[in-house]
Nucleic acid binder design. Structure first.
Length: 203
DNA sequence: TTATTGATGGTCT
DNA sequence: GACCATCAATAAG
C-alpha cells in the first residue's frame, strides 16, 4: 500500500534558508498544468540577508529583490545575463530576506513538454533541468511568475515532501558568485546524474 | 576531456 | 558603465 502524499506547507519555509535548502532536496515540484509537469529537486542554494554578501538582498531592498523581503513560500524569479530566468522560493518571515535557489531537478512527468520548452529535442533527460536557468526554461517559468504565492488558492503548484531519505546530501560553495569567504550553502544529492555540471564542484 | 568566449539586457552604482 | 546566483558552442589539449 502506497503511503499518502505529504505536501510541504508554508511553515516549512519560515526558517533560515541554509536550513531549509538541504531539507528541500528530494522534494517533488508539481505544476498541475496540462500536461502535468513534475521534477524532483536534486540541487539548491541558500541565499540570505545582511550578512550574505552574495545575496541580492545584501544591499537592502530594491524593486527587483523585494519579494525576498516578503513572507515565506513565494517565488522570487529574476532575470540575468540578458537571457535567463532563475527561480527561488522565499524563506523567513516578512521583513527578513532569504531564499533558496532551485538549481537542478530530475524530470518525472511531462518530460516531452519540458524538452520542447528547452527548444531541444535531442538532449538527454539529465540535461533538461541541470542548471537554474535550464530548470526554469523546462518548466516555462519566467518573470511573470515573480511574486507568486506558492500556497495561495490560485496557485497550481504543489510540493510533495520526500519522506524516504534514500540519498546522501553533498555540500559545497555556491556557484557563479564571487565572495572572499565563501559560504558552503550549495546542497545537492550525492552521486545524482541530474545535478548541474557547470563549474563542477564536489563535496 | 577541460577551458574559453559570445550572446544579450536588466539592475544598480 | 560595470556587473551579473548562466548556457551552449567552440577551441584547445
Amino acid at each position: 500500500m502506497a503511503p499518502r502524499k505529504k505536501y510541504l506547507e508554508r511553515n516549512f519555509f519560515n526558517n533560515e534558508p541554509e536550513l531549509v535548502a538541504p531539507k528541500l532536496l528530494g522534494t517533488t515540484l508539481v505544476i498541475e498544468s496540462s500536461p502535468k509537469l513534475a521534477l524532483k529537486l536534486v540541487e539548491v542554494e541558500a541565499y540570505g540577508g545582511a550578512l550574505d554578501i552574495a545575496s541580492h538582498a545584501y544591499r537592502g531592498m530594491t524593486k527587483r529583490n523585494k519579494v525576498m523581503f516578503g513572507p515565506p513560500g513565494f517565488l522570487y524569479v529574476y532575470f540575468t545575463y540578458g537571457m535567463h530566468w532563475c527561480a527561488n522560493i522565499t524563506c523567513l518571515k516578512e521583513g527578513v530576506p532569504g531564499a533558496v535557489l532551485l538549481r537542478a531537478g530530475m524530470p518525472t512527468e511531462g518530460i516531452a513538454l519540458m524538452r520542447r520548452n528547452r527548444n531541444r529535442g535531442d538532449i538527454k533527460d539529465q540535461d533538461i533541468a541541470n542548471g537554474p536557468a535550464k530548470l526554469c526554461q523546462a518548466l516555462g517559468v519566467d518573470g511573470s511568475w515573480n511574486g507568486l504565492d506558492l500556497f495561495g488558492s490560485a496557485c497550481n503548484i504543489k510540493m510533495i515532501a520526500n519522506e524516504n531519505k534514500d540519498f546522501e546530501v553533498g555540500r559545497s560553495n555556491r556557484i557563479g558568485v564571487r565572495e572572499e569567504s565563501p559560504l558552503p550553502w550549495r546542497f545537492f544529492i550525492k552521486n545524482n546524474m541530474f545535478v548541474s555540471k557547470y563549474k563542477a564542484q564536489v563535496e
